[in-house]
Write a protein that binds this DNA or RNA. Structure first.
Lengths: 195, 195
DNA sequence: ACCTGAACACCGTTCAAGT
DNA sequence: ACCTGAACACCGTTCAAGT
């Protein structure tokens, strides 16, 4: 018989943590504010103090996802390496994250189709694009990537990366195709980038 | 004062048509079986005769989307042309469809993350992959595409295509980036395919 | 065969009221 | 400041009953 504490401490953070957990385990359809509140031992109206509506919670979740992906990608950087290694590392880090956080990645990217999507999310996605751009630009500086407008190479590269990750998360590609396909994809990207 | 007819004629088809319309106009969040039934002048329980639950309707919608995309791509085939033209045509047709049917494409591909996703949907997506594979294989036969396992080229190509379409639908790429980026992407794909 | 109407167990959101 | 409890207007799904 546990007494319900009046204050939760940090309900906002608790909501986000729990929400991501059920997103991962039961999918986006199973995400309910009321159930979240129940799980955390709080009244069903309590979440509204921290998120003005359900969409606001989803946005916060997606934004946190972008932040974590950013960190993951930044941590995978290998400054000294060759372009092939740098690109390969970037791609593997992105795909690994996508596979490990399929539902979250999906939330991060599908939210933007909504006309009312928050500007912050679009910016977060564009930050990732900028990171890919940087990898390509450094390759150009080193003479390992063909010359020309960075975007004419960075956009195709990021596009391939995201598409592969997207297929890897879904069942369009089997796990074996993902495993064996990754090297082929990286080789193909390198051909597309070569001078 | 219109009387409600008892039979609807073809309620199933009417439900699908109306559902796709509201999906397009108001997004997936606004799709409700009860509202659909109301719009069609039928009781809220009537749809259950034709779709066992909401997911079944969404699956049918996605499946119809794959069929239409298939037709669109098949219609864009130019058998006599060079590989570059054939690939370019395929890519443009896919991207155009994606931009014109953003919410639908999203539904088509996100549904598969659901563990309970219908096998038919996965197969439909794989049919598209097979079409891309065919374009690449024909390019190989003509000596315009590098040799090796078809998948080692077809998967990267389809992956790039889907990723670009996905970014084009969302707001990661601005409309200008999409317009100007398409040619760059096709050129990059061709470099990745070149012998 | 196809649909209705009522019922059930859920939602998200709002708002006075409590501490 | 933060939370509760009740209220409102919605959902999806099921099932006896109607035609």
């Amino acid at each position: 018989m546990q007494t319900r504490r009046y204050h939760h401490g940090d309900l906002r953070a608790a909501l986000l943590t729990r929400a991501e957990q059920t997103l991962r385990e039961k999918g986006p359809g199973a995400l309910s504010l009321r159930e979240l509140a129940r799980d955390l031992g709080v009244s069903h109206a309590a979440p509204s103090r921290h998120f003005k509506d359900k969409q606001a919670l989803l946005d916060a979740l997606a934004l946190a996802g972008f932040d974590r992906l950013d960190e993951t990608l930044a941590a995978s950087r290998e400054p000294g390496a060759t372009f092939a290694d740098r690109l390969g590392g970037f791609v593997r880090a992105y795909v690994d994250f996508a596979v490990a956080n399929a539902q979250l990645i999906d939330l991060m990217y599908t939210i933007k189709h909504d006309p009312a999507a928050s500007e912050a999310l679009v910016k977060a996605a564009q930050r990732l694009g900028a990171m890919a751009e940087e990898v390509v630009a450094e390759g150009q500086r080193a003479g390992e990537v063909r010359e020309g407008p960075v975007d004419s190479i960075a956009i195709p590269v990021f596009t391939t990366l995201h598409g592969f990750a997207s297929f890897a998360m879904s069942r369009v590609l089997s796990p074996e195709e993902v495993a064996s396909g990754l090297d082929a994809v990286i080789a193909y990207m390198l051909r597309g980038c070569a001078p």
